[in-house]
Amino acid sequence: MPSAASAPVVSRGLFHWLMLASGLVILAFIVLPLYQMVTAPSPAMMWKTLQDKEVMASIWLSVWTSSAAAGIAFVFGTPLAYLLARTTFPGKRLVESIIDLPIMIPHPVVGIAMLTLAGRNHAMGRALQEMGVRIMGTETGIVAVLLFVGLPFYVNTAKAGFEAVPRRLENVSRSLGAGRGATFVRVTTPLAWRHMLAGIIMCAARAVSEFGAIVIVAYHPMIAPVLMYERFTAYGLAYSQPVAVWLIVVCLVLFLLLRLVSLPREKAS
């Protein structure tokens, strides 16, 4: 008698093996270049890079500007995400498309657009400069660009989280005397925080990887991708690799965090 642990009764056909082979090719395509790059620099080189103040400053700048962008996306994106999840209104599709725009637009275009708005030829640019806010070549500019490219990732993820909270729970909360605000704090947020956190991390991860818009708005101060590019053009591949590896380490930590929080909760005891 066949046991439950025996091989499946139905043999897997050609279709299955074709799918598997094609999947493996794609995986290799992603993993191979990264593996090559990570293993290329010698440990000594890695250590030397770690002591390079310019490198560390750029990675730190990348990390904090991306985190700041994610924080701002959280504060200002949450209300919009909630509105989009809970209300229907004419033009909602349009608003959703606008949110997605930063994903579609070529990155240098983002940089040029930001500079256009912040320049002296634009009323808003003049107003900003009068307030002492400068975009070109400043950390403010970097954060603004990173926020621009990262926002869709936060808003869309948080929106999905809010949509997953049954409206009935909010209805019950209100019938029990809690207003809209209290309901949002006591019911909606505790049930959607995983999505919100995942959105923050995705937004930050996207921001860390931005290059095209940043080189236009702020070549200096140098974030890690720009420094890498500079090392590559000035000294060659071997000098840009260690910087890349250290940035990858940072990104990996971010993504591990993302995977961890989006895992389903352990069974409550």
Partner: peptide
């Protein structure tokens, strides 16, 4: 608004707060 009506509501699916 519902919070000022002094009503209680019980749904088919209970709608208990899972957290």
């Amino acid at each position: 608004p519902p919070e000022r009506r002094g009503i209680g509501i019980v749904y088919q699916d209970s709608a208990l707060f899972p957290h």
